[in-house]
């Protein structure tokens, strides 16, 4: 059997996903034995022309990490799509925009001001320096995810994808037994299934951020008031964060039946908030707990803001009205 041809690409990414590939340790040797890596900008230094020179569909599978932030990301995603048989959205950013999707809460100008300061320093799309025309790819008005610009065959969630998930993907690849397209390489259930903490699920009586208290290591973090995203997040990572006494931040995205992860978590948390009693006389006490939230988007949409239903920030005049 001919060796499989694989590619690894990063778009708007931090590099963590590329590192995560190596977390499988010696299994990478099996991969290298079974496959040729045709594209890996993180490790080699390919040119656009190298990619263009491949025949359409020549690459068997490309693991694409990072979000779609610039016009270059769009074009490369489209180019890669033509060159590969299977395209994998690898990691949270490719899957759902990831943590950098929170940038959609700011406008492009706000981002530029923050990053580059004075407008004079902002990048120009076209410049001429010493007689050379320079063109920078456009920084898109809104960040999005891979599936928004091309068809995606598989999703490997996680920030970064956990070792056992990557390993499962590699095993399938080496064996030449990729599952049906559309498969998400994670559990179909939520994280709670993998979490060993004890749940009482009585009520949420306070809202705590991780630094505000030392969580009990045995009890459900949500029960203690820490906004653990586990209930609204796919398992597959074996609940490593809660095991390390940190609340889940939701990097694997929601289950297949949920459209908007933040909304699902908001439903759950609001449903559980209370004093233990429900009644007209408890409304004020409930409001006092609800008022302890100061960043709902950052809490419930940490990885899903760009692909949430609202996707970005709006500018209504009375957004703070009641």
């Amino acid at each position: 059997m001919a060796k499989a041809k694989i590619g690894i690409y990063w778009a708007a990414a931090c590099g963590g996903c590329d590192c995560a590939l190596l977390e499988v340790n010696e299994q990478i040797l099996d991969v290298v034995a079974a496959a040729d890596i045709l594209l890996w900008p993180c490790a080699a230094d390919p040119k656009y022309s190298d990619l263009r020179d491949y025949k359409n569909g020549e690459i068997d599978i490309v693991l694409f990490n990072g979000a779609i932030r610039t016009q270059e990301n769009v074009e490369l995603a489209q180019l890669i799509r033509t060159k590969t048989k299977y395209l994998v959205a690898f990691g949270s950013c490719a899957q759902s925009g990831g943590v950098i999707g929170l940038a959609n809460q700011s406008s492009r100008n706000e981002i530029f001001s923050t990053v580059f300061g004075d407008q004079a320093n902002w990048p120009q799309l076209d410049t001429n320096k010493n007689g050379h025309d320079l063109h920078l790819p456009e920084f898109l008005p809104r960040l999005t995810h891979l599936a928004d610009v091309v068809e995606v065959d598989y999703v490997v969630p996680g920030c970064p994808p956990p070792k056992q998930v990557v390993s499962a993907l590699f095993s399938a690849l080496v064996a030449g037994e990729l599952p049906a397209t559309g498969t998400v390489f994670a559990s179909s259930k939520n994280l709670c299934e993998e979490c060993s903490r004890e749940r009482e699920q009585l009520k949420i009586t306070q809202i705590l951020r991780p630094h505000e208290n030392d969580p009990d290591t045995e009890k459900c973090l949500l029960d203690q008031g820490f906004m653990c995203m586990g209930p609204a997040t796919r398992g597959g990572c074996l609940a490593v964060c809660p095991a390390a006494n940190m609340p889940c931040t939701g990097c694997a995205g929601p289950t297949a039946a949920i459209r908007d992860q933040g909304a699902a978590m908001l439903n759950t948390v609001a449903s559980l908030i209370g004093t233990g009693e429900e009644g007209e006389d408890q409304l004020a006490a409930e409001d006092a707990i609800l008022a302890q939230f100061d960043d709902i988007v950052g809490t419930f949409y940490r990885f899903g803001a760009a692909t949430s239903i609202f996707k970005e920030r709006y500018h209504e005049r009375n957004a703070t009205a009641r």
């Binding site: 939520n190 299934e193 699920q201 039946a257």
Partner: peptide, 11 residues
């Protein structure tokens, strides 16, 4: 297939 047994519904 989806339920992970978080138990939120029970209460």
């Amino acid at each position: 297939e989806i339920c992970g047994g978080c138990g939120v519904c029970v209460g």
